[in-house]
Design a protein around this nucleic acid. Structure first.
Lengths: 372, 372
DNA sequence: GGCCGCTATCGAATCGATTCGATCGGCCCA
DNA sequence: TGGGCCGATCGAATCGATTCGATAGCGGCC
């Protein structure tokens, strides 16, 4: 029967039925608590924050008053204005949430971040960098930002944050001034993987790459695509592979999923027909590789007898049935952890260095010498 | 020569070698912009927010001044204090981020939420409800909260939010006063699934349930576990199945994963040995079902010839090899969407009703009549 | 010609806390 | 006994915007 303020939008207190304890009894503030406890606002603040000295008697008097008024602690908004800190870390995803979450690497990285943040910080604010969202990035409350594969169109947001002294960490993004980088040596790893194939005897190799730019469609990998590429990861992995196979061609996937891998796999394998067909396919992610294997098998090719397929990531995807994918295993959770730690340090005023990780080559059962 | 604000933690100004335009040129505020444009703060505010009338000439003068000072718009913290709105929606997960993200249902729900929020709101703040995290829930800045499978130990946080007039929506949680509920009719769906098995002729049936309480360990399903259960979903799904099989027993999994399903499957199938072995197993999630199938196959049982296995969710998990899992398909993304819409409406001061969804029975290839 | 009403603008109050500097005792030690 | 110091407390300033009420100017209408 009594509801003192509306669930509604604005702050306007609004009495709406009935009995009321005291006049104007809107949501209590620290000042109300202080008054009731008979202390000043500053003292009441200390009772809650614990910063500064206060006698035990006073503290408990304040807390009791708070209890009586059903005051549950300082308003986070006011606190964050005054302190300049909100305890929130923004995580900027390139894609729509769904796509990002379907990628096991992204999830592992997010988990790593959250492991390191749990203790001190309030939570991860998920933001997307696509179109409209960008204004959001500039109007949301957070203390530090982590970019997951940020592309250059974030330039303006980055400038805004820099101006606001918001520390930034980029995981696998293009290096930006003032943005700490946590990355993999994708080029070296990819070259090592290509060398493995070369060592097995493969000479006719094709690739299925991750998206190269904001366009999200299946494209043939040609010079113009590479020239206009903005995605550092794809570029570096391609460059590494081309250290071994300079003319490496193939297709650019629309996203990292096994369905895309399947589609791209069909194109790669269909194109050549007989003799033009590659003996090995390097997919830039494990999800893509799984799709490529499905495509190969649907065309009656056996892996690895007729076709070698290697991935990248070390995602340990379930349901590859009998295959154990040959891939470069990257420390995804560790990348997230490193980013989380970097955020913590930056917020503490330290100046941690960039972080670079390397990959481990996992030789599974999907790679072997070329047929005949 | 002077830069007043360091990237560092606290607000302490800190000079560190640089060119400077004017003394005390810290991060500019709206007041600085107003002064430079020769207008009052209120007018400058209108120029940015667009709320209120302003002449085109004045507006552009303000914007030009802002440009010159490299002022990029109002500080989100101050704005959120004044307006009482931050544009952030808190999403409270029961588990650690990693576990939540490994569950395809959770991801689908999150995606649904974000679809509906994209337009108006700033982003999703991920919070976890475990232990320490709870204080975080009370000290983080957000306008509305969505609980994903919230358990009773959140009672206090819920009280705090209610007191702060933060609208709350619970997806698949216990009904709480003042918390809008978006849920599935788990009981009905589970009963329907059980009826399907009964119709096929199964009489010896066992179950592998989702966790029943905060303990996360593999347990035998007995009366005491059920009595102490706190997780609405598990309870309801069990109750539904027991409408058809009143004495239904089995095991309680530690989490929803195929590994757990495997472990639980071994226990269920190992226990009885020959004649006591069930002819069908109802798993409370598809992930668990996948594990149960693996367990069955590792024991030399064929599905569905020797054992029928059904799941719940309709997760379309890749890598079930040849099986098409019989399951109750729930509209997970829709649940998220409904929650997102509810949040929007609640924030607009409306009073939307609870939402209930139903499931579709998908009959795949993992269920059939009992052997012999 | 006077009044009405609208637009553009301003000044001051406000959101709810934290924090800086000052004050006031009490206690210790010389 | 007095100086110095430390702990507890208070008042006032501050964080950076938004918003309310008031005012000035100006055109239109009767």
């Amino acid at each position: 029967m009594t509801r003192l303020w509306d669930v509604g939008a604005d702050n306007q207190p609004h009495v709406d039925g009935d009995v009321v304890t005291k006049a104007g009894q809107a949501r209590p503030t620290l000042a109300d608590v202080a008054k009731r406890a008979g202390v000043s606002g500053s003292t009441a603040s200390i009772a809650f924050s614990g910063v500064g000295s206060i006698s035990e008697a006073t503290r408990s008097r304040v807390l009791r008053a708070a209890d009586e008024l059903r005051y549950f602690g300082p308003d986070p908004r006011a606190r964050s204005l005054r302190q300049g800190r909100s305890g929130i870390v923004g995580v900027v995803l390139e894609d729509r949430v769904l796509h990002s979450f379907r990628d096991p690497m992204t999830i592992a990285v997010l988990d790593g971040i959250s492991q390191e943040l749990d203790a001190e910080h309030g939570g991860m604010l998920l933001l997307t960098s696509t179109g409209v969202g960008e204004s959001t990035i500039q109007s949301a409350v957070f203390d530090a930002a982590v970019f997951l594969g940020c592309s250059p169109h974030l330039r303006r947001s980055i400038e805004v944050m820099r101006q606001r002294n918001i520390p930034m960490v980029a995981i696998e993004g293009q290096p930006f001034d003032g943005v700490l980088s946590v990355a993999l040596d994708n080029r070296e790893a990819s070259a090592r993987l290509a060398a493995h194939l070369h060592g097995l005897g493969h000479r006719a190799v094709a690739t299925v790459t991750l998206p190269m730019d904001a366009r999200r469609e299946l494209l043939e990998l040609d010079a113009s695509v590479v020239a206009g590429a903005t995605t550092a990861v794809s570029i570096d992995r391609l460059a590494g592979a081309r250290e071994v196979y300079p003319a490496l061609g193939g297709f650019v996937a629309a996203n990292s999923s096994s369905d895309e891998g399947y589609a791209a796999g069909l194109r790669v394998l269909g194109a050549g027909g007989g003799s033009g067909r590659p003996t090995a396919i390097m997919a830039q992610s494990d999800l893509l590789a799984v799709g490529v294997i499905r495509a190969a098998e649907s065309l009656g090719l056996r892996v690895p007898a007729d076709l070698t397929v290697v991935g990248f990531d070390g995602a340990r995807i379930e349901g590859l049935s009998d295959h154990d994918l040959t891939t470069m295993v990257q420390p995804a959770t560790e990348k997230g952890r490193a980013a989380g730690r970097a955020v913590t340090e930056l917020l503490a005023g330290e100046h941690p260095p960039d972080v670079a990780f390397t990959c481990d080559l996992h030789i599974g059962t999907t790679s072997g010498p070329p047929h005949r």
